[in-house]
Amino acid sequence: MSALADHHSTRAAPARKRPSWRRLPAAPISLAAGAAAWELIGQLAGMSFFPPLSTVLARLADMATSGLIVTSLADSLVNLILGFAISLAAGLVAGVAMGRYRKVEAALGVYVYALLTAPSLVFAPIFFSLLGEGRGSIVAVVVMYAMFVIIINTASAIQSVPVHLVEMARSYGAGERQVLLRVMLPAAAPMIMAGVRLGVGRAVTGMINGEMFIAVVGLGRIVTQAGGRFDSAGVLAVLLVIIAVALGAVALVQAVDRRITRWVPRTTRGNQ
């Protein structure tokens, strides 16, 4: 009996004292661990194509002070913003139309799914010959990457708006425009924003691919040039900048998302 009691008490003890590691913030620790691992492996391996983090950061500082990063970054951001804005506007309009009207879905659906799954870069030569090696081609590639996922998410978001809300609005005299603007779009907003989040990530990928393979400008140009010189530290330094751009863009979308979908009860996620 006493052994059983002891067993119980030792079992119960750690449950009462919460383990301290649970209170630590997960994201910073994960980042620090990743940075340490990078540095360690880079130092130990001593391979030129995998320099340690410190070397990459030093290279990044060089590029920043020479002004190379800033001008390229500005160039890239213009491509990104233009491409994403077009994707968002066209994606929302096409998605709402496909979600609301069966005929539009039947007409456009096959193209949208085809282009979503097609490797977007195969269109690069077409854009290149159509639009030249200027900004237009890169923006077009960004749109090819980002738009279709926004269309598809918007269409399914509109389709899953509860029928009884639309019926209610019609019973109070709402016309088609009011049903769309005052009922369907707000009701669909959380799911639409999920698509926009995916779209913004894909837009960053499209921007870099466009800049590397079509017109050699912006951050893509630095990557290409550094790669050509076998300058691994340079490539990885620009990669850090690109990751920062992507994370910043996603954070911006998430901030908008939180404002729009504040009414959605957040009960399905744990806090641990």
Partner: peptide
């Protein structure tokens, strides 16, 4: 009209 499932706009 008053609806069985209320049909309120949740936002």
């Amino acid at each position: 009209m008053v609806f069985q499932n209320f049909a309120l706009l949740p936002w």
